[in-house]
Computed example of a mutant assay.
Amino acid sequence: MSPISIAVLAVGMSIDSLLVSVSGGASLRRGCRICDAVLVGAVFAVVQMITPLIGWTAGAAASSYVARFDHWLAFGLLTLVGGRMILLALRADEGEGRETSFIGTPVTLLFTAVGTSIDAMAVGVSLAFIKANIFVIVAAIGATTFLMSAGGVLMGRLIGNRFGRSAEVVGGLVLIGLGCLILREHLAG
């Protein structure tokens, strides 16, 4: 693959992480620190690097099995995290310090990262067929995901400061919408 193809692939694989990171940053109740953005960027990048490696390793043999449930898994995880964000935002009092963002707990951060990267497994399978240098591609995906996710958290925090609970509800709806989009794409195809 050419460097331009790798860059386009890396950005395309990172878009979901960017959108989710913006919604997570918008729903942070406490002040967003750089370490929050770095943590989200690192977790999303590592998971986004692992899933195409799993797909690449599994190759064509497991692709039909994984393709049967990957969309349902992504839909379920994103809907669960998004629904939790909405419920907590609607229940929270303005003065209350309850965390509604997926960034608030390690488990929901990991579930969200997995939910946004399930489709990368199928990309990994296809990369095995074209005999691409998986390690260069995975490094590009990881670096791009890290930068886009960390930047998304910081950008989302700016949005959250201006729009408060409304931004939290919209963030949850974005996660649910992304899960529905993934499900619809797989069921329609």
Rank of each mutant, 00 (worst) to 15 (best):
L53F: 10
L53I: 12
I54R: 01
I54F: 14
W56C: 04
W56H: 14
T57G: 11
A58W: 12
A58E: 07
G59C: 09
A60H: 03
A62G: 15
A62K: 03
S63V: 10
S63K: 13
S64H: 12
Y65H: 08
Y65S: 07
V66F: 11
A67R: 12
D70V: 06
D70H: 13
H71P: 02
H71M: 07
L73G: 01
F75I: 03
L77F: 11
T79C: 15
L80I: 09
L80A: 13
L80R: 07
L80E: 07
L80V: 13
L80D: 06
V81Q: 00
G82E: 03
G82H: 02
G83M: 04
M85Q: 15
M85G: 05
M85W: 01
I86R: 05
L87V: 13
L87W: 09
L88A: 05
A89L: 01
A89F: 02
A89G: 11
A89N: 13
A89S: 15
A89M: 02
A89Q: 08
L90F: 09
L90I: 10
R91W: 03
R91E: 12
A92D: 12
E94C: 05
E94S: 14
E94R: 14
G95P: 07
G95V: 04
E96P: 04
G97P: 06
R98A: 14
E99I: 10
T100S: 12
F102P: 06
F102T: 01
I103W: 03
I103H: 11
T105K: 14
P106M: 06
T108H: 02
T108E: 09
L110A: 14
F111A: 00
F111L: 15
F111G: 00
T112R: 00
T112M: 08
A113Y: 09
A113P: 09
A113S: 15
T116S: 09
D119L: 06
D119M: 05
A120Y: 00
A120V: 04
A120E: 13
A120N: 15
A122V: 15
A122W: 03
